[in-house]
Amino acid sequence: MATGWKPHAFRQFILKIHSRCDLACRHCYVYEMADQNWRNQPRRMSEAIAKKVAQRIGEHAMTHGLTEVDVILHGGEPLLAGPDFIAYVVRAIRREMDTGSAVNVSIQTNGMRLDEEFLKLFEQLGIRVGVSLDGDAVAHDRHRLFRDGRGSYDLVSDAIGRLSRSRYHGLFSGLLCTIDVRNDPLKTFEALLTFDPPAVDFLLPHGNWSTPPPFRDAGSSSTPYADWLIPIFDRWYRTAETEVRLFTEILRLITGRPSRSESIGLSPALLAVVETDGSIEQSDILKSAYHGASATPLHVLRDPFDAALRLPSLVARQIGIEALSPVCRECDVVTACGGGLYAHRYDENSGFRNPSVYCPDLYALVSHIHRVFAEDVARMRGNR
């Protein structure tokens, strides 16, 4: 354990309220990758487990003096849990928090069931809504399909329209887009902007050194993902039409501020996951590495969240640069890159103490953003 290290309290709680999905997306890390534990999970979290989760969150907040926590309702597809259960969970958590403490609730959905009933409920409870959309119809329907092979774009785009072009726009937290480098980057970005999203998250497809992501040859110096993202950055930097979280976080890091994302930078991991059966887990993205990678021996019925804070696997995600490989620690962009997403460092022979499988892409992207920003600062100083 790192010398002098003290655990950081969890501030974000991802609740897997439903463990199944109404789509069969080809790039899904929950169903299509290494960990298949979803098969053993109850379809929906029970009210008894939800009540205990709420108590544990309140307990953790009071123990650490937290005046604000983030709760993300997730799945599977969380809307399958139904409006009544979602209302029960949110109200239970807020009852367990100290008076005046904030519970910021959001839900990440594929949008298939996002109808007026849900939107009215989310408005009433102040639940912000993120939707997964991979670009235009062709881009989206490469992967986000029904089990019979039909695309989901038309239904999803209709749902986003209901959210973004109505009184509910204030609930809209943004779009999550998984990158496929076969799709034109600027065309993809423009398709997302059509819905006036407050933010866009570009997600690198999950993979690692043992199971490389698409079009990313482990050990190759090529940079297909940086090459895809850089044209979007150059447009975004000039126009700032919406927040692009990856770019915003990199700019924060190169100007000396901490990252607010686990995908970039050296900020400690502050999130805990609760599965539908009440198991306490680490980031569910670890499911892309190997079966059981996100699991812990803990359960909300018998364990507080504090019990997870000293698990070696969690400590490794809180101690920053000390957990990185020698290659990363000697890199000139390490404070911005941070070794990349923890799950992307995995190798079946050496564990997680490796650079990201996206190392060349991250280096190229961070270096480009730093160069553009530095030139901009130099220009402004020259005009004073």
Rank of each mutant, 00 (worst) to 15 (best):
E190N: 10
G170S: 12
A199D: 11
G161Q: 08
L193A: 11
L203P: 13
P213T: 03
R165I: 11
R162K: 13
L171E: 04
L203D: 13
D217E: 08
C177S: 05
R162P: 07
A199Y: 10
A199G: 15
H169I: 14
G174C: 13
F172P: 06
C177V: 01
K187H: 13
G219A: 14
S210D: 07
I179T: 02
L175M: 01
P205A: 05
P212R: 00
V200C: 04
A191E: 02
S210K: 05
D196K: 09
L176D: 03
R182V: 04
D196A: 14
L204R: 09
F215W: 15
N208M: 12
G219Y: 10
H169E: 10
Y168F: 15
T211P: 09
P185A: 00
E190L: 09
P213C: 07
E190C: 06
A191M: 02
R182W: 04
D201W: 14
D180R: 05
W209D: 01
L176N: 09
G174E: 06
F189P: 03
C177G: 02
L163D: 06
L193M: 13
S164W: 05
L204I: 12
R162Y: 12
D184F: 02
S173F: 02
C177E: 00
N183K: 00
P185W: 00
P197Q: 13
I179V: 14
L186S: 01
T211K: 12
G174N: 07
N183W: 06
F202G: 01
G161C: 13
L192G: 04
L193T: 11
G174K: 06
L176T: 11
P198C: 11
P214C: 04
F215R: 13
L176R: 11
L163T: 11
F172I: 05
I179R: 08
P212W: 02
A218C: 11
N183F: 01
D217A: 14
L204S: 10
S173C: 11
F195P: 01
Y168L: 07
L192I: 01
S173G: 09
D196W: 03
R182M: 09
D196F: 07
L175T: 05
T188R: 04
G207H: 07
G174Y: 03
D201A: 13
S210P: 00
T188I: 03
H206D: 14
Y168V: 08
F195S: 05
T178S: 10
C177N: 01
A191K: 04
Y168M: 12
R167W: 03
G170N: 08
G170H: 13
P205E: 04
G174Q: 07
L176G: 08
D196G: 07
L192Y: 06
F189W: 15
G207M: 01
G207A: 09
H206F: 15
S166T: 08
L192E: 01
L204C: 12
P213G: 09
P205F: 05
D180C: 02
G174P: 12
N208H: 15
W209M: 09
R165C: 13
L176H: 14
R182I: 03
L192R: 00
V200Y: 03
K187T: 12
F215E: 13
A191Q: 00
T194V: 07
P198W: 06
N208W: 12
V181W: 00
R167C: 09
